[in-house]
Design a protein around this nucleic acid. Sequence first.
DNA 1: CGTCCGTCTCCAATTATAAAAAACATTTGA
DNA 2: TCAAATGTTTTTTATAATTGGAGACGGACG
Lengths: 300, 300
Amino acid sequence: MARSDTRFREAYNQLLDYCEALPPGASVPSEKDLGDVADVSRTVVRRCLARLQERGVISWEGREKRLLRPPTREDRIEVPDSRPSSDDLEQRFLDWVLRFDVPADTPLSVAELSRMFAVPQHELKEFLAGLSRFGLVARRRQGGWTLRGFTKEFAIELSEFRSVLELHAVRVAAEMPVDHHIWPRLARLRAAHEDLRERIDADFHEFSKLDESFHQVINSVVRNRFVEEFQKVISLIFHYHYMWDKAEEKVRNAAAIEEHLAIIDALEARDAAEAHTAAERHLRTSKTTLLSSLRYHELG
Amino acid sequence: MARSDTRFREAYNQLLDYCEALPPGASVPSEKDLGDVADVSRTVVRRCLARLQERGVISWEGREKRLLRPPTREDRIEVPDSRPSSDDLEQRFLDWVLRFDVPADTPLSVAELSRMFAVPQHELKEFLAGLSRFGLVARRRQGGWTLRGFTKEFAIELSEFRSVLELHAVRVAAEMPVDHHIWPRLARLRAAHEDLRERIDADFHEFSKLDESFHQVINSVVRNRFVEEFQKVISLIFHYHYMWDKAEEKVRNAAAIEEHLAIIDALEARDAAEAHTAAERHLRTSKTTLLSSLRYHELG
DNA sequence: CGTCCGTCTCCAATTATAAAAAACATTTGA
DNA sequence: TCAAATGTTTTTTATAATTGGAGACGGACG
């Protein structure tokens, strides 16, 4: 009933590996050095050494540590199945919200979500606290959380915010010097767009991915931690909604390709005003699409 | 070792107050209704009723509840000193960081902070998780948190982000109809600015507050949860830094008043382009001031 | 003297648990 | 007969206890 000793277990196995590379009878480095090897504190190193001594892998007395025998497969300690979760909790949570169209004002049960995503409760609470900064969820007075959710207002505000950030990015991009990394990237994007334009009838599904990279490249000219943080959420939401709104997908994607190309054209011509106009047009289309996909889901 | 029963205690006292308003011998409403009165669940109401019965304030058998005697001061239960904290933790935390110039990459101890701010640990952890969304703090691999802090890069990125949001707000404001609430507010701001301009030699300290309301009014035309969330942090940081950078404060503030008035002039003339230019000029000054105040602190 | 180790202190992740909420079942009375 | 109230059980949340781990300090060793 306390914290896990995963850190110890991983360090132990790592030190076994380290010992394997040592010649037999060699003296083992200092606790501090071993700590650097496994990236843990001395406290953990000493626990590992104690176990190694116990199993007769090393002798240990004061600062005299010697390798007695090469470590075997038997010596290894089991490490409790590391978490493939936790890292991409954000991705999986938003995926869940959008995929199942979880309605606004749904009460969120930390207990339930924690089971669902196989993540400790406190981690989920911290995660939700983070999301509340984006206004996606809110704390309830009687405890717990609600999904403030995917309402029309949310979509409008999100679109507006996205426009503000992205129009700024376009303005910045137009001013970039010729040797900036954006230009080769834009060239590649143009090629990809023109390629897909030819194959649009068959491969219109591929656009979703292309759209994501396009916006990512545009925004990459703005080096700003705040912008970057938001971009993650924004792109995820737009990405999924595009994928699921099946109405007129082919026509929509074909049109979007042209809009993207118009922006690329203007940027490559260093025509800031025209790039801005083209970007505004495209963002307006995007907003409309997002809103109509909402209506579609509400009806369906 | 479990959650506090503050909720019960507060509800209990509240129900006592409620009973006081009842005529003697009256029948007490249903559990559900009492729950609505005190804004708690039936579970808590029943705990309260049990105690009321035990103390002989009411009789309680099934759904027959009657007031036996008016409740006295003696009947009240002590409620463990409610938290004057917690609410404005954000305010107090940023205040601490800025006031003591806590340097970048300082390790933050949850335990220490929790004592310092008289807030339960888990609450602090959630708070820090939220701040990490703004890139103000970051989780360390070996556990705990660091203040990513108030570096030059941070100030630049914050200023840039602020400019993006605020220039957008100015553009929106210029388009607002004559009956919008912004216009009377701007008029009042103009008066306040002109008033302070006359008294600037003596009262230049007052500008800090005026600056905050000015930017708040400008941004109030943008109804957007994302913008609002950020604005809180941004204004706090700029506000404090202005207050502490004592170098040339009077000259600086006098200049800022003129810049503000230029923006107001242009907005009232519905000259969007000029308003934009004036706002850009002012935001550039702000950024310079923020950066120089950083240098000042580093040297001092 | 500088590094290494034994010891100690404090912190943080994690879990256990009481308090509260919510769901469910039963009764009651118009 | 059925809606509202109460009794009962289940689930969830907030918080403290618990244990693993990080780091500080001083002495010892070379």
